[in-house]
Nucleic acid binder design. Structure first.
Lengths: 219, 219
DNA sequence: ATTACTAGAATTCGAGTAG
DNA sequence: TCTACTCGAATTCTAGTAA
């Protein structure tokens, strides 16, 4: 499996910008920077290659290394750990702007299975609709971090012959107004987050598509 | 010396909040989470103890662990590495608010030794004074990261029998206006950053103490 | 100059177990 | 239960060196 040494080398390569493109480097140099012999550096690099964490190109005797997607993902996971350690205090600030959804939020919220749990666990009766916010790129990492946290679990259920999955919720404020951030447990990568609240947020906060908002999420 | 395994364990303990306070934990649990035996976990923990990276308390047979300052610092250094990999693209955004300085910025800028280098390396003749900005806590980590980067080096010199140290500069904009961020090489921890520009920024940008500003630093 | 193989040395592992 | 010791086994190291 993947060892801390593997991550150490991956990080070292990424600091040489190998996460962006192929970077020429020698095994002696790697060894020097890691405090091990050239031979060990060579072996470890081939280990990363076998684990499909890096790609290696050869120009004659020299090599150029680039992190594979899997390698970059692994480092991102590490990064998220450190963010959890140092950045997540009591709350996280997320900025973005209002966008239109497909109106399906209303359907989900009104399902009895979700509605009852929202009342019980989030302590408010939700307005039947969600506010969609497109998160600015600079705050996307925070969303990824939130996905790794437990939050408040709204359990899934089966109804009308289909499965409604678990949903994670975080109490938050949006432009100062109490609300909750909703994250489906199984979700594809997206920069859209969904907010629910007791009242219609578009009306209460005078929001239109494109209006910038600040969401403060409590952990 | 400190190995990647040591960092791995330190991080694991920090994820259990051992960076904040003593946390009760067993060596079996550590072993399980690290994918090694209880014996190895015990040995590695004692290794961290010897390296003075953690403090260990005993309650009878049980132990409680807390990261020592040295351990927290080590993890912070790791975190900064990951920030360099993922966050520093071409620029960093830093937000804060204007505060009053002691007027000493003027004295330093006007020293011939600094003034000439600023003209040559930053490509503008600086207004004789600095704008002090108190950085919001959420962006402080970025300052720490900047301190680890080379930037543009303004070399120190000796004049009037005293030493003027090296200073690091980064080209930036403040509220859209071209300027430069100045960081003395040897500086104590502070949330105040100093900005210089061609004109008086307070006048040009209509700034008063407490005015929020956005500084975009180019790397 | 490189990378990377072999082989013996050095280190690290975990089972067994004491306290 | 816990932690942590001993010791033989397993792994990982580097020197030497081929290509």
């Amino acid at each position: 499996m993947i060892s801390p040494e593997d991550i150490h080398l991956l990080k070292l390569l990424a600091l040489h910008r190998a996460n962006k493109d192929f970077v020429g480097i020698t095994t002696s140099q790697i060894g020097k920077e890691m405090g091990v012999s050239q031979q060990t550096a060579s072996r470890r690099l081939r280990r990363l290659l076998n684990l499909k964490l890096v790609e290696v190109r050869r120009n004659g005797r020299r090599i150029a290394v680039k992190l594979a997607k899997r390698g970059v993902d692994l480092l991102k996971k590490e990064f998220i750990d450190y963010q959890r350690i140092f950045e997540l205090s009591e709350y996280v600030e997320i900025t973005g702007e209002v966008v239109s959804g497909l109106g399906e939020g209303r359907y989900y919220i009104m399902k009895e299975g979700y509605y009852r749990q929202i009342k019980e666990k989030l302590f408010f009766e939700p307005y039947p609709g969600t506010l969609n916010v497109r998160v600015y790129p600079k705050d996307m990492q925070k969303i990824e971090t939130l996905k790794t946290l437990p939050g408040i679990c709204i359990k899934g259920f089966v109804s009308e012959g289909r499965t409604f999955g678990n949903v994670k919720a975080f109490l938050c404020t949006i432009n100062g107004k109490d609300a909750a951030l909703i994250i489906p447990e199984r979700t594809h990568y997206t920069d859209i987050i969904e907010i629910i609240a007791e009242k219609n947020l578009r009306e209460e906060l005078n929001l239109e598509d494109g209006t910038p908002v600040e969401v403060v999420v409590f952990l």
